[in-house]
Structures are given as C-alpha cells and as structure tokens.
Amino acid sequence: MKVLVVDDSKSIRQIEKRYLLGMGYEVLEAANGKEALQVLEENPDVALILLDWHMPVMNGYEFLKTVRQDPRWNNVKIMMVTTENQEKSVIDAIMAGANEYLMKPFDQEMLESKIRWLMEEAL
C-alpha cells in the first residue's frame, strides 16, 4: 500500500518514512501541497496521506480542501500530522475532510496505532 508523506521538513519526512517502511508500506514524499498534488496525479493508488499543516507554496489545509473536492481521491485517508493544536484548527481540518489528527512530536507507537485504526476502519 502506498502512503504519501507531505511535510516541508525533510527530517520529519525521514522519520515518518522509516516508521512506515517498518510497517510494510511503500512511501512517497512531497515537501508541500503543490508537490503532493503532482505525486497524487502520478500515483492514483495512494491509500493514505500524512499531511503537515504549515508548509510553503500550498499549506496542508489548502491541499486537504483541494483533494476532498476531487472525487478521484474520495477513498484516500488523510491524517494531519502537525504542531497545530488549536481546537479550531483541528475542527476545521476534520470538517474539511481529514480522517485523523496526530500531534507532533509523536513516537512510532503513536503513529502506528493511529494508522492501524484508520486503515482498519476503511475495511
């Protein structure tokens, strides 16, 4: 299964990638929402997106709204992985179509449990 990691921090992408590879996922990366849209166009079989909020060019919230307006990606699960912890932001993201929310910093166990819950819910 393909997972797209979208974060402007290369170190965060590397951490998430290492955890995901350990779980058996194929990992794609993008540094902002615009790059992520391109990766999605080229990889229509992406099943899960781990999405940062604060990024240049196109932020995570703008990307989320764009993806959720396109019926091709209705089945893609999107988890916000961010330092953005304002209650309004969490609610905005869920209302815009995020399936789950994970606060940074996180550890491997936290990420794995959220992903397992999210992907089992999809079955």
Rank of each mutant, 00 (worst) to 15 (best):
A98P: 00
I115S: 00
L123G: 12
P105G: 11
A98N: 01
N74F: 02
T82V: 04
V67H: 06
N32T: 08
E35C: 15
K2D: 09
I49D: 12
Y61F: 14
L111I: 03
Q108F: 08
R18W: 13
W73Y: 15
R72V: 06
R18L: 15
G33Y: 03
A122S: 13
R116H: 13
L4I: 07
E100A: 15
N99D: 04
P56F: 11
N32H: 15
D7G: 05
K77V: 01
V27F: 13
Q14V: 09
M119K: 05
V81K: 02
N85K: 11
L102P: 01
K88W: 11
E109V: 13
S11W: 02
I15A: 10
A36D: 05
T83P: 02
R72I: 09
P56A: 09
E109Q: 14
G97I: 01
T82Q: 01
G24W: 07
G24R: 04
I94C: 02
K77L: 10
V67T: 11
N74L: 06
P56S: 08
L48P: 06
L111V: 01
E100P: 02
N32F: 13
V57R: 12
I12K: 06
P56K: 10
K2H: 10
I78D: 11
A98Q: 01
L37Q: 13
G97F: 03
K10W: 04
L123C: 03
Q108S: 14
I12G: 08
